[in-house]
Amino acid sequence: MNTALRLLTVLGGSALLTVAAGWAVDRLLRRADVRHPETPLWNALRRCRPALQIVLFAALLRGAYRQTQWQPLQDHEAGVGRVLSLTLIGAGAWLVVGLASAVVESGYARYATGTRDPARVRRVRTQVTLIMRVVTAVVGVVAVAAMLLTFPSFRALGTSVLASAGIIGIVAGIAAQSTLGNLFAGFQIAFGDMVRIGDTVVVAGEWGVVEEITLTFLAVRTWDERRITMPVSYFTTRPFENWSRGGVQMTGTVFLHCDHAAPVDLIREKVHEILHRCPEWDGRGWDVAVTETTPSTMVVRAIVTAKDADDLWTVRCAVREQLITWLSEKHPEALPRLVLAPAPDAGPAPFGPGATGRVPKQGGRR
């Protein structure tokens, strides 16, 4: 058998076996997905097919490339073997991460389907996200270490590196003190249930929703679509408001400054009418009361409820807008105004224009 035929046999045979194995595995996973539709595991595992085929192809070539007896390969046998080994290690790491991701995501999906508590679902989602980041980081570090060990020069340096590991660890710990603090803070947030993905929080005076949590930073999406990125250590060392703790239901207030002649009973009826027409109001409760007075106005407070922070904002805006419109159209005297005229029943000013009284003498009778 000549060299060209051997090369074609090795490459073609490896490619054919790889394609056949990938097709067979995908076929089995598809059948398993049809038989067990209650779990997304089998469909998620199908995404690992490219990594599996690369692993198989690299492994077959790594074991059979010497059989080709092709002169260019023989001249660079060590380099070709090292390239195939690096490819095999990288694809193997990709496959391990894909398998772990499929298992974790399917477990989370089944848990989210069977759990009605949104707070628990967000907590598990946060933990799953951080666990997958840790697994990816560990697999990546191990894969890089395995790749470096394929080079003889790094093997020779291994003894000296291990001998100085203690000093390097101390120096690295001091230099990366902030990074390590954020790393441990990330674990504390994930498993301490302090804040979760999807929670509504107020940090640094900004209101938003937690969009992403990593081992080192946390991203908050504000109402105007801005992203605030903060180190996770901020949430373990400083106070912040978490409106989703203890449930996502919320109570809000709407304040109006009205004239003292405003019809409070009619305002109370109008607020009740507005809430019944507002789909975001959850119906748990409402109230209208005068909470404060000033020399020129009184403060009317309306209390409303909603199932979450977004709906509460909508309800408050709807009550405020419709109530002001109704007052301006039906009861304009209820809106604040600047009074410059005297009271209707008051007589003329004793010392002003038109006063007819005499100016009393000072000091009494002489």
Rank of each mutant, 00 (worst) to 15 (best):
P72H: 05
L5T: 10
E105A: 09
G347N: 09
P348Q: 09
Q249E: 14
R155V: 07
C278Q: 15
L7F: 04
V134G: 13
P348D: 08
F235W: 14
R35V: 15
L28Y: 05
G283P: 02
I189C: 05
I303D: 15
R155P: 09
R358V: 08
R268M: 12
Q67C: 08
F217G: 00
I189D: 02
A355T: 11
A102C: 02
M1P: 00
Y234N: 03
D282Q: 01
G12E: 06
V124W: 00
G347P: 15
H36T: 11
L11Y: 08
R226E: 03
W223Q: 14
W326N: 07
W94A: 11
R133A: 00
G140N: 05
W207K: 10
R123D: 04
L73V: 04
Y65F: 14
D265R: 15
F217H: 02
R221F: 09
V104A: 06
V319A: 02
L45Q: 09
R316E: 07
S178G: 00
R62Y: 13
A59L: 13
F255L: 13
G140M: 01
T113Q: 12
Y234H: 11
A262I: 13
L7Y: 02
G352H: 11
W286D: 06
A91L: 04
V315A: 06
R337W: 06
F240Q: 15
T68P: 01
L130N: 04
W286M: 09
G186P: 08
R226A: 03
P348T: 07
A64H: 06
A58Q: 11
P344Y: 10
A100T: 05
L61E: 04
P239D: 11
P348E: 11
E273D: 07
L7C: 05
T136D: 00
P37M: 15
P353I: 14
E241R: 08
A355C: 11
A262N: 10
R120K: 07
A306E: 11
L52N: 09
A262L: 12
V142I: 06
V144A: 14
C48N: 13
D224P: 00
D282T: 02
I168R: 15
L95P: 05
Q127E: 11
L84F: 04
W70T: 14
D265L: 14
L327C: 11
R358T: 09
T115M: 01
G347V: 11
G107W: 06
G63W: 06
P344V: 12
A4M: 04
L61Y: 06
I167Q: 08
M298K: 13
V34F: 03
A163W: 05
R245Y: 07
D265C: 03
W207N: 12
V96Q: 15
P350Y: 11
R277E: 15
M250W: 02
V103N: 07
R301M: 15
T129N: 13
K307M: 04
V142H: 01
V288D: 15
V25T: 07
A172M: 13
I170F: 10
I324E: 07
G363V: 14
T305C: 06
G181T: 12
E206G: 03
R62T: 11
D117F: 05
T129W: 08
G247T: 03
Q177G: 01
T237P: 01
N2L: 01
Q177V: 02
F191S: 01
D117Y: 03
A334T: 10
T325S: 13
A59I: 12
Q322K: 14
W70K: 15
P353G: 09
V139W: 01
A109Y: 00
I228S: 02
